[in-house]
Design a protein around this nucleic acid. Structure first.
Lengths: 168, 168
DNA sequence: TATCCATAGTTAGTTAAGCTAACTTATTCT
DNA sequence: AGAATAAGTTAGCTTAACTAACTATGGATA
């Protein structure tokens, strides 16, 4: 949708384009940072995200997919893998026979807790190298990042996760 | 109670753990944000990262891999795909017959430029919804994020990209 | 100089994580 | 009751990682 640059694009001509460039690379590097942390332990970031949302009880497949921003088959698949590792289990939803509730197993609970703790410690150790000013800057930016990243505040009215392929 | 302000001695027991938690989720959501932007156009973030480093001339496979933080087979593979799309090409390195120089094709140049412009505009549009204070906060945090994410400032003396598999 | 080891890339095979399309089973709505 | 909708799964494909094993070139050194 190439909307002709009307009203608010005037506010766009300024710094934002530079900031956008910087933000993009910073985020990209942030991804690397997260990923670099992925080794050493047995779970990927995706798996952590998924399991983290199960700590308070069973969650439906559809909800999982929506929260992760992926399609349901992807959620099914991820859950399958975690099930094979004995970290989560499926249960019928008493409220709806079509639906499924995904829950952490006992072991899943332990694993996610330990993993979370470990990662926080690792990040904390890195944060410890920052001086107070830098830490404050980071802290101040966090809610802004959250706001940007939230589906609502972000962009993309619909969520439309990924194109998959489309080779040309 | 707690919150003993004697700074650097134990350093780790205090706030950092909370900040770490927040940072981790913020970054994770940032990833979603980036990914949500991936549709609509024909390149993935990885491909953009790769192509971006070729804008100034041919780059060796090994260098590409190192810059992306992946192993060489992964770089080979990614380059293969981009080659199939006609966006990059391989050339022998005159300085070393074992090596290969990966370059953007004419079309690759055009595509990466357009893509970059487009993404900056999209992000800028989102940034435009922030007030000055929020924008300033983001701006202030950017260098800190960069510092964290840089291989040196980050962690992991060696780079050791990802565990790949390790099924149990 | 001839051998030996290190370096640059590729190939093969595996996994995780996405997607769409098509399908089954329940639920809901008219 | 019958049609439409919603929840999940299955199948088949792509991208992006990894390791292990290989080829070929470049350097070192005995």
């Amino acid at each position: 949708m190439d909307k002709t640059p009307d009203v608010e694009s005037q506010s766009l001509g300024r710094a934002p384009l530079e900031s956008a460039e910087k933000l993009r690379t910073a985020l990209r590097h942030g991804v690397f940072f997260l990923r670099r942390m992925d080794n050493t332990r047995e779970l990927t970031s995706q798996q952590i995200s998924l399991m983290s949302m199960l700590t308070d009880g069973g969650v439906r497949m559809t909800t999982i997919a929506a929260n992760l921003g992926v399609r349901t088959p992807t959620a099914t698949q991820s859950v399958d893998r975690l099930m094979k590792s004995g970290l989560v289990e499926r249960q019928p939803d008493p409220a709806d026979a079509r639906a499924v509730l995904v829950k952490l197993t006992r072991r899943g609970h332990n694993v996610i807790a330990a993993e979370d703790r470990h990662r926080n410690e690792v990040v904390a150790k890195v944060l410890a190298r920052l001086d107070d000013k830098e830490l404050a800057a980071l802290d101040a930016a966090m809610p802004v990042l959250e706001k940007l990243a939230s589906p609502r505040g972000g962009m993309t009215g619909e969520h439309q996760p990924r194109p998959g392929v489309r080779r040309d």
